[in-house]
Design a protein around this nucleic acid. Structure first.
Lengths: 206, 206
DNA sequence: CTAGACTTCAAACGATTGTTTGAAACGCGA
DNA sequence: TCGCGTTTCAAACAATCGTTTGAAGTCTAG
């Protein structure tokens, strides 16, 4: 790492990798495709990141550090203000992801990558994500436990597991509903978030 | 195709491919790994299936033909008997997938492969699945529309999209809940199906 | 202006990818 | 037993994979 800002090459690689991993998967996107899309030299990946695996982890770290911070921040605000409800806690989890998606041109690029990670069952990637960001899910689970005191622990965990599935799948835009022509990406995603919160809250209450 | 039964090589390849695609993805599992696991010659894949892409499609066809048939059969039974409710229709969708999972030693191998297909956003695989098995989802959507007559069409589609996400994710066993030691795979999966139906029905009603 | 750390580059490394080849082995009807 | 369609096999194809190399280029502190 030198002195001045080093955004250029590193960030270009991360951006291109994110899009190609979302589109073709981690194994399906080659470093040559990534570096070509980023318009940098092939060797730049191993120079800046060491290996393809490290690049993959860095793609997650770049987004998840801030995403986790924002989620926990919103959750803490709710607890402090005494405004915690199923709907507001779900909103604290979803809205930061929504904003992240809307930061980028294509929409939910990173969320698609994140959903891919769930499919990697025995990979070291799941260990990496669980080790580094598992505490976020734990904090939210504790908040839901407080809001649903009548639910047994096992019952609660089942419902949370299903809820995470619904959220992951929907935020990754894996479904069949297409954005209506003329409707902005923002409007489409916000409508989805609204339905998602409504649906999941009802499922958790059941 | 010769005279006698030809289960051996073809079926061994399909079984090994299914497991490796579930574990490493379509791009991540090579034909050499597949043929080694199936204990057949490398060239057998191209001889029996023509290409890797055709093999992938055949992995789906082998399971989805019967799965779709059973799902529609159960749905038709419900309609004929007048027993259709949110819970029973969800059961008609989930139980056949559950039985398919329990047919095999490892549990939900094929369901994991199926969930991988959802992540392949622009691939020809999604087109193949949509073209050949889209009518199943359509029939179920129609059944739900009849059961939720007060819901607007757009509202209904949003909820169904979210429901499919929850079902896909859960049936693929992507969640964090582990089977309890001492608990059978069957008992674990049936418990999941019960929670899944309860959660999703509540979300659809909302 | 020079020394030296940092970054980029073209080129190549061996390994692995999907696919093709032609010969060998097989299985059954005639 | 012969002959012939079917299947298996080892070997090789060009292409692509992740990674490494050493030289060329860029930049700033001194």
């Amino acid at each position: 790492m030198p002195h001045g800002t080093q955004f250029s090459t590193r960030q270009r690689i991360l951006g291109a990798a994110e899009e190609l991993f979302a589109e073709r998967g981690f194994a399906g996107a080659s470093l040559r495709q990534v570096t070509a899309a980023a318009k940098v030299n092939l060797a730049a990946v191993n120079y800046h990141f060491g290996s393809k695996n490290n690049l993959i982890e860095e793609v997650f770290r770049r987004r998840l550090d801030e995403l986790s911070r924002r989620r926990l921040e919103r959750l803490a605000e709710l607890d402090a203000a005494g405004h915690a409800s199923l709907e507001t806690v779900l909103d604290a989890f979803i809205t930061p992801a929504l904003e992240l998606s809307l930061d980028r041109k294509g929409g939910s690029v990173f969320m698609r990558v994140l959903a891919r990670a769930f499919a990697e069952h025995n990979s070291s990637l799941r260990t990496f994500l669980s080790d580094n960001y598992g505490h976020v899910l734990k904090d939210f689970a504790a908040a839901f436990a407080r809001l649903l005191p009548d639910l047994g622990k096992e019952e609660l965990y089942w419902r949370l597991d299903i809820a995470v599935g619904a959220l992951t799948y929907a935020m990754a835009d894996f479904g069949m509903i297409q954005r209506r022509s003329g409707e902005s990406e923002r409007a489409h995603r916000e409508k989805m978030a609204k339905h998602l919160i409504h649906f999941t809250a009802a499922g958790l209450r059941a």
